[in-house]
Nucleic acid binder design. Structure first.
Lengths: 198, 198
DNA sequence: GCGCACGTCTATCAGACTGATATATAGGCG
DNA sequence: CGCCTATATATCAGTCTGATAGACGTGCGC
């Protein structure tokens, strides 16, 4: 039922690169695929336990971590690798992703264009920030990970973000123009209404 | 805890347009904002109950529905309108959306480019289908809803989808070229390996 | 040398949300 | 008559998020 536990596969993929603890996994995910994938501890830790029980991963070692607590380092098992490869070959199941901005805009029709305009401006500013960050990440990766066989795939995922954000910026500009037009029309109508009332 | 119940606001926004049943709400959401927002019954019905208890919506009437069962039609209360307006003014909280395609691609680095290429091709075909559907929806709306004050907002949300999908198609083409290049490089390396082994 | 902010680490919980499934009825089709 | 489709409500297991808690170590300021 529901969708299949994708956290499993993020864990398997990451552990195929090298053994890690739950905390380390979250950090590794954040630092490599963080712009399109994140895992919360509330998802990660129970999933790790289940995966260990299922024999997909195994406790590699326990270390005294810098920070007192015992760090449980996991590694993939052969079975885990098999399951991961199976997932990698399975087609992606598409799904509609919720877009709260568009929902607010749609309902904003009944309130007036001013708030909608503010939402668009905020979204635009945020997208520009992300765009800068992505560009910097891309440059850093090219410099520091030269020759890494993962680099072209890395770059591909960043390009996806870049193209998506650029399209979003263009849409923001369109939306701004449309909403400003609607605001002007509304103001003109109001003014006419006042004149009529005289 | 967790994120706030956005289903509430989708319900409020839709009921501000006109009173509806749970089933009708789902259909209305599907038919207007379905390309970027969906609600499941498992979310909708319990949410409706809670909202009624909280006084955000009220039972408007019960009808014998075409289809035997009793249809519970809800309407917004004044309090519901107030809460909805408050939500409309509140800024959108941004969050990283998961992208399974990119995750498979990233891990696909360790398997080889062939499966990745298949994923990209499938995604491209799917995006083209969606693009066609959106264009048709846009044309239909312009024809049938001429003069509707909601129309410009409607068009705006469709433009967002259109621009996003076009960007995705461009990315797919880039990705295809990159992956084909990697596949060729891998094949050449294999061939060299064979020659060396002689 | 005392407190305390910060980083590392595991862990848990309420609540949101999905996708599947169950149940019931009316109408149309062959 | 059975079968399909549309209308309608309801429930459930299971995924995932964001918040929070607790425990320890290091370095910093005062």
């Amino acid at each position: 039922m529901a969708r299949e536990n994708t956290c499993r596969f993020a864990v398997l993929g990451m552990l195929c690169r090298k053994p890690m603890s739950g905390y380390g996994l979250r950090r590794a995910i954040e630092q490599t695929v963080g712009h399109f994938w994140q895992e919360s501890y509330g998802n990660l830790y129970p999933t790790l336990e289940r995966m260990e029980a299922e024999g997909l991963i195994a406790l590699d070692r326990e270390e005294r971590s810098p920070g007192g607590r015992v760090r449980k380092v996991y590694r993939v098992t052969t079975e885990g690798r098999r399951v991961c490869a199976g997932w990698l070959r399975r087609p992606v199941v598409p799904h509609v992703e919720r877009n709260e901005l568009l929902l607010k805009l749609f309902f904003g029709a009944r309130v007036g264009p001013k708030d909608s305009l503010a939402h668009v401006e905020r979204s635009r500013a945020e997208a520009e920030g992300l765009l800068d960050a992505l560009r910097r990440i891309d440059e850093d990766a090219r410099r520091e990970r030269e020759g890494d066989p993962e680099l072209p795939y890395w770059h591909l995922s960043i390009r996806a973000g870049l193209l998506g954000l650029e399209a979003h910026l263009r849409w923001c500009d369109e939306a701004r123009a449309t909403l400003q037009g609607l605001a002007r029309a509304q103001a003109a109508k109001k003014k006419r209404g006042k004149q009529d009332a005289r």
